[in-house]
């Protein structure tokens, strides 16, 4: 599965469009991480636990999108976009969407 965030897959031609595919996940941070983050809020700097959490969640959203595309028989997803929205205090939604295509 080839993913790009431009309209084409460079060096290949799109032979079939399958339409929009998407994947999303909603994650809450766990209490331990929250306490650590609370401490980190005093000294500032990177919150490694959160970075990991966001990375994992985004990977999961992407994997769900890829799964949907695979079921359609696509072998590439073009124009992938990511979006983040905060659903509630302490929970975030990570959303990935793109256009499933078949390239040759």
């Amino acid at each position: 599965m080839i993913l790009t965030n431009i309209e084409t897959v460079p060096g290949k031609t799109i032979v079939e469009h399958f339409g929009l595919v998407q994947g999303s996940t909603i994650r809450a941070k766990h209490v331990g991480r929250d306490i650590m983050a609370g401490l980190k809020n005093i000294v500032g700097g990177e919150l490694k636990g959160y970075t990991e959490l966001m990375k994992e969640s985004r990977r999961e959203a992407t994997n769900r999108m890829i799964e949907e595309a695979r079921q359609l028989g696509a072998n590439a997803i073009v124009n992938v976009r990511y979006a983040t929205s905060s659903v509630a205090q302490g929970a975030a939604e990570l959303f990935a969407y793109g256009t499933a295509v078949r390239v040759e």
Binding site: L3, G11, K40, I42, G44, G45, L47, Y50, M54
Partner: peptide, 27 residues
Amino acid sequence: KSSETLGDVAESRLVTGCAVISVDYFK
């Protein structure tokens, strides 16, 4: 967006990077 001017493309793939940063108490 375009990559036509770059030359022949062998491979392309999506790459991401993220960072979560917090301010300190003083700031």
